[in-house]
Amino acid sequence: MYRPKTTLEQWRILQAVVDNGGYAHAAAALNKSQSSLNHAVAKLQNQLGVQLLEVRGRKAFLTEAGEVMLRRSRHLTQNVQELESLADNINQDWEPEITVALDLAYPKSHFYPVLKDFLPESRGSRLKLIDTVLTGTEEAVTQGWADIVIGGSVPKGYLGEPIAEVSFVAVSSPDHPLAQLDGPIEASELLQHLQLVIKDTSQTPNEKQGWLKSELRWTVSHFQTAIELVMQNMGFCWLPYHTVESHIESGQLVPLDIQGSSFRITNMFMIHPRPDTLGPGSRHLSDLILSHRQITPLNEQIEQQNNEASHGDDPRRT
């Protein structure tokens, strides 16, 4: 069995000497005597058989070998620190890993500020972000493989907190035959054209949402692929407006005026598949998601209306 020649403390002392510009400042930072630091570094070099530092005047400088060894040693001490933090978190029941299932339609731009706030408070927990679609999102709830799920529907028997609204719009290339029609497009006309749909991530997809009656359908895994195919004048597709807004503004895509369904609005919900066993890390992440949600809860709407009424701002009184 391999026995290390060196100790973590020796590497930490070497790092302190370099980071503080010499033995004197490192000794003050570590609250140790300068002679003890000199002895620790000298012993480290003897044990390795490699000169790590050379003293010029009153300052110590890294040798070329020392630069390489120091860089690698930082990974070592950081890994140990993270390992010890993980042990503390486990003792405090803070989850070592948190899995979040995000429906592909949910705007990731809403989630990035959440992650930015969560990172410094994550206590070393690993975060797994899994993209899901339709039935695959529901399965993340019903099968319980995710700690937090953000999706467009709440399966029976579960509760969900609304956090955002997503508008879906049918689009095509401006050169597509559907874009050339005058007036609202009837469903019978759609039947004659290629429809691009996003693949359900479930192993047993249940196609119960959306209009899926075209004689010819192509299935893709991501919105970006669908957008690129539509811009190539290959067909039409219902897509979240936030994914195509810039393309519509630039004229690369046009929204289709479809009889009875020019656009659809879907609420996005945050769902806890196993609320009774939700860990403190997942609970904190959930609180951050709610603090960044893009939709006003009903209780806040009612409170706002009551405040306006109490201040005489209720328009029904005029």
Score class of each variant (00 low, 15 high):
Gly281Leu: 06
Lys43Val: 10
Lys32Leu: 13
Met234Leu: 12
Glu165Ser: 11
Glu82Gln: 15
Glu97Cys: 13
Asp103Ala: 13
Leu70His: 05
Lys208Leu: 15
Val80Glu: 08
Ile185Arg: 01
Gly21Ser: 00
Ala146Pro: 05
Val100Gln: 01
Gly151Glu: 00
Pro107Lys: 01
Val55Gly: 07
Ile130Arg: 09
Ile258Ser: 03
Leu298Arg: 12
Gln143Gly: 10
Ser221Cys: 09
Cys237Tyr: 02
Leu62Val: 08
Asp103Ser: 15
Gly312Glu: 06
Ser214His: 00
Gly144Cys: 08
Leu129Lys: 08
Trp211Glu: 06
Thr225Tyr: 09
Ala65Pro: 04
Glu84Asp: 10
Lys199Met: 10
Glu215Phe: 12
Thr204Val: 10
Asn20His: 14
Val141Trp: 01
Pro184Ser: 13
His25Thr: 14
Asp117Glu: 15
Ser109Arg: 15
Pro177Glu: 09
Glu300Ala: 09
Pro184Gly: 03
Ser35Lys: 11
Glu54Cys: 09
Ile130Phe: 06
Met270Ser: 09
Gln252Trp: 04
Gly279Met: 06
Thr6Lys: 02
Pro205Gln: 03
Arg71Leu: 10
Val244Asp: 02
Leu86Pro: 01
Leu86Gly: 13
Ser282Trp: 00
Asp257Arg: 13
Met69Glu: 13
Pro107Val: 03
Asn46Ile: 10
Ala16Asp: 04
Ser173Thr: 03
Ile198Glu: 00
Asp314Arg: 07
Leu62Ser: 03
Pro96Ile: 03
Gly312Pro: 05
Leu44His: 01
Trp94Asn: 00
Asp257His: 12
Gly151Leu: 01
Ser122Arg: 11
Asn267Lys: 15
Leu129Asn: 07
Gln305Ala: 15
Ala105Phe: 04
Phe168Gln: 02
Gln15Val: 11
Ile271Thr: 09
Pro273Ser: 08
Gln294Phe: 06
Gln47Phe: 06
Ser246Ala: 12
Ile185Thr: 07
Gly21Leu: 05
His247Thr: 02
Tyr112Glu: 12
Pro297His: 07
Asp103Gln: 13
His110Arg: 13
Leu104Pro: 01
Met69Ser: 10
Gln209Met: 12
Ala65Gly: 08
Arg12Pro: 02
